[in-house]
Design a protein around this nucleic acid. Structure first.
Lengths: 112, 112
DNA sequence: AACGCATATATGCACAGCGCACATATGAAC
DNA sequence: GTTCATATGTGCGCTGTGCATATATGCGTT
């Protein structure tokens, strides 16, 4: 039984930001935190410990994969692990963004 | 110290749908499930048991309140409890919708 | 009255995901 | 070699959820 796209919807806000960041290119964990905060103007944040567990979960479920990329300059500290979005991850993210578009559109049609 | 709007962002998808439904008018628990499913085309669902606990939590945090409304026709079954969105709940929902608008707008500016 | 049925709210239990604190690994600077 | 900055990883308790079950209320049928 294959994983269905809809089985992962709705995405958690943090997962959505992780996938959006990875859709722009491979990234490593620590930098993903900054991307998430930047993209959400600081509204969506995540504990660094929870981040790595979230990345493990997204890998386990096939939405992302470790890219194997290594830094040309192996400096700075503990070796970075780079992640890439998978085709399935792109599918799920696209479906989630459609859901959000419809939600926003629905809210615009209502009195506030 | 008062509760800050941003302390509740990002909202869970289910909470967002509950607040959106209640922004249209008072509703009782069981009907909120259907509204959530309708508004999301069945993508966002919630267990009935989890729903009542979510409503308790939203009341505890001041986003909704029990309206005290009673059905004119007290039939059907166990008495319904009606909920209403509070001013604070409206604030949080509005802020969440702004967040989602920006997220969608950001995604549209990227290659896919 | 008693029973089943539909509606509606509520609770027990186990599991997943998260924040917080802490641990570990690697290289650079001093 | 000690300290610092970067980066990944782990232990623990709390919160929220799904699944199952319990409870409450009225109606219809017998």
């Amino acid at each position: 039984m294959d994983a269905k796209t809809d089985d992962y919807l709705p995405l958690r806000a943090a997962d959505c930001h992780l996938l959006m960041a990875l859709r722009r290119g491979e990234m490593y964990g620590y930098a993903l935190l900054q991307a998430m905060a930047d993209d959400s103007s600081g509204v969506v944040t995540m504990d660094i410990g929870a981040l790595y567990r979230a990345l493990d979960r997204l890998m386990r479920d096939g939405l992302i994969a470790e890219s194997g990329r290594q830094d040309a300059e192996p400096s700075r500290g503990r070796p970075r692990r780079y992640y890439a979005i998978t085709d399935f991850g792109r599918e799920v993210l696209a479906a989630e963004l459609v859901r959000l578009e419809r939600l926003v559109a629905l809210s615009h049609g209502e009195a506030r």
